[in-house]
Amino acid sequence: MSKNFKEKFAFTILALITMCVIIPALFIFSYIIYNGIGTISLEFIFSAPRRGMTEGGIFPAIVGTMSLILGTIVFALPLGVGTAIYLVEYAKKNLLTKLISLAILNLAGVPSVVYGLFGLGLFVLLLGFGSSILSGALTLSCLILPIIIKSSEAAIKSVPNIYREASLALGATKWQTIYKVVLPTAMPGIITGAILGIGRAAGETAAILLTVAAFFLPRLPNSIMDQVMVLSYHLYIISSQVPGMPDAIKNGTALVLLGVVGIFFFVATVVRIRYKLANRE
């Protein structure tokens, strides 16, 4: 086989594999958009469900999901980035650090329902937060922490050491170096991790089932100590637990969930691009 042929062959195979990944995703997106778009109206988005959820909108669930995502970011991002900074910049490279890294990787593989039970035991019962946004956000934070830590770690490690040396040689302290040089340079990578985490948290059902999600609660939460409806769980209920549910509502709900995640992705991407430009400018 000629070198040229091998080159073309490899290229074709890789392109096909990429297609295999992209096409199902595109199919799912277009299916949801095509079937759901007819349901979307101001009333559907901004009113509460009525008549055993077969009529009305899904506003409480949208608010629930958004507040959960926000809460999760608030807890998970500082904790995750802080851990990553410590592991990369401060921790001695010894057996203990290796074990911690391994443990974090393993956490990423724990089934989400286990996180749900953990959240129920710790946040809901032991700490007495009850079934609430706070408990749910904390549980989801635990769930996405490994993702945030690992991607932040990779981003911080990829900052060239010559930047650190340059900063320290100018009389900056270690923390100034991290805060002013390392973090801004690593920020696009950190935000990518946050985006992955948000996606995971927004779609999660098992972990919130026991910690925050309400079956039917057609009003808005007053505080983070309230239970809420959540889009992912709501979707599960109306798809499998409520007989005679119109397909339009199911499809519309799926589209809205996709949209909410999309909004967070969009915001994160804008921030990411701003950091990238600031680094290059």
């Binding site: 060239p160 930047y163 340059a166 040689a169 100018l170 009389g171 900056a172 340079t185 600031a278």
Partner: peptide
């Protein structure tokens, strides 16, 4: 840090910050 302000350093590979 104060010492390094008195003793500046230039490295082998130019290493300006991405700023």
């Amino acid at each position: 840090a104060a010492l390094r302000r008195r003793v500046g350093m230039v490295f082998q590979k130019p290493n300006p910050f991405p700023k």
